[in-house]
Amino acid sequence: MKNCITLCIVLLCCLQGIGQNTLLRADGKEIRTRIVPPKGYARVNVKEGSFGEYLRNLPLRSHGTKVYYFDGREKWNRSVYCAVVDMEIGKRDLQQCADAVIRLRAEYLYKHKAYDRIHFNFTNGFRADYTKWAEGYRISVKGNRVSWYKSKAKDYSYKTFRAYLDVVFAYAGTLSLAKELTSVPVTSMQIGDVLIQGGSPGHAVIVVDMAENPATGEKLYLLAQSYMPAQDIQVLVNPKERDKSPWYTLKRMGNILTPEWRFTSADLKRFKN
């Protein structure tokens, strides 16, 4: 019996070791230290203070952390992600796919006090400026009619900023975000670009890091997403290139298969400002 138990333990340990990803570092605290590029590749340079630098340095929860929905339930499919961004998502079913992209962009701008650049459109085209909200105005939604009204005192606190985002999440989505972004050639991809298909449902994922092979010029990139229902932002695995996963190979044309959605190279877009 003891020998049988010992054998089972050895087999279990061997099975756990099979398929371990050597590109993941369990002690890494953020994307740039948790996920290393494959041999021969190095991370692309990013400007200090840029959106790319912010995304590359997103804090991660401890290695092996699971993704949870807004209501505390565990995401049933653990095979789609390799890391979880350490950022609360609220207690309501609001921060889904496009909302996560909006969240990251807004958090970056708020961190740098670029308040006048924080604005997003509702699906009906209404422009919701954060500065208007911070000055004490609130948004009235009656059917398809949306308007501002004065309600509060001036307040640029994070709490008020976070409340603004929840309203944006409620009335924006892939349809509105896709119209706000500008299309870019996939060969010009930068960290912070978005793969997006506007629709009901549509989907959006964001490029959170890139690497390049200086000898061949080949580039790789990492993708992150939220999904439906609202859930933790997660760094995706690459279901097609297991040897490079979670990195994706940048290709001039073709489909981009992510674990829960299929994009094309024509779906790449960028924030205008």
Rank of each mutant, 00 (worst) to 15 (best):
Y164T: 05
A100R: 06
F51S: 10
V184T: 10
V36A: 12
I196R: 03
V167M: 08
G202L: 05
S183V: 09
P38A: 07
I118C: 03
K251D: 09
D243K: 11
L7N: 00
W133L: 11
A163D: 09
W76E: 06
I9Q: 00
R92I: 06
N57I: 02
T131V: 15
Y69C: 03
L223D: 13
S157I: 03
F263T: 11
K240Y: 00
M253H: 13
V207Q: 07
G72I: 11
K219Q: 15
A134S: 11
T216V: 09
T160L: 05
Y248N: 08
E241Y: 03
P38Q: 08
R138K: 13
E48Q: 12
S200D: 11
V80S: 14
V80H: 11
V46D: 04
K75G: 03
E30G: 03
S151W: 03
I5G: 00
A134Q: 08
E180W: 02
S245P: 12
A98T: 08
L268M: 05
A204T: 07
D99H: 10
R25I: 09
T264Y: 14
M210F: 02
V237R: 04
I35E: 13
D129F: 11
D129H: 14
H119Q: 14
I233G: 11
V46F: 07
W76N: 01
R32M: 10
D116S: 12
S157C: 05
G90N: 01
R25K: 14
P246L: 07
T160M: 08
D116R: 06
A26E: 11
T258N: 10
V44S: 14
R252K: 15
V205E: 12
L11R: 01
Q234A: 12
P37W: 02
L222Q: 05
E260V: 14
P246S: 05
L220D: 12
A178F: 02
A153V: 03
L60F: 05
K272N: 15
L23E: 03
